[in-house]
Amino acid sequence: MKDQLTSPAGREQFFLRLYQESFPDLAKYIQKRGGTLADAKDVFQDSLVIYYEQLTKEKPIANQKQQAYLFGIARHLWFKRYQQQSRFLNEVDGVGEGLISDQIPQEPAHRDVWQFLEQAGQKCMEMLKAFYYDRLSMEQLAGQFGYQSTRSATVQKYKCLEKVRDQVKQKSLTHEDFIG
């Protein structure tokens, strides 16, 4: 399955399947608890991001457990959302607590950051994303970005890192600029 996640087309198929398999159950779950379709969509999107990051970073989760795992993430996110809206915090139990270490960050507050990314070069950002976020192997990276060898792909990866780092320095961007 990890191989499927290394290309946009593969990810599309993967997410389509997850929506079809898991979204109806989550929609029912959220509707019963007073949520709207918009709530269900938001929660599911964030759950898919977390799920994807888990899959790319860790050992694959057994196939039969996937749906339960994704549902667990979604339920946890829904509780968090509900808690924020509710004045009766104590009524909500802590089911799912500790399941997720990462939090879905908000979109950066400063549009400048994304403009800056464009300047850094789309290809460089895509390449760095493919390696550090999607966690492609060097062979996969070389193949996808058209390099003859893993060595030249490696050199290019570090060049991109340097290019973006120089821009970060120039603009004195801080971490707060990114998390908003």
Binding site: I104, M125, L128, K129, L161, F178, I179
Partner: peptide, 12 residues
């Protein structure tokens, strides 16, 4: 900072 930035970009 670049690693953090790439993470944000990837999520986006």
């Amino acid at each position: 900072k670049v690693y953090g930035l790439v993470q944000q970009y990837g999520r986006k």
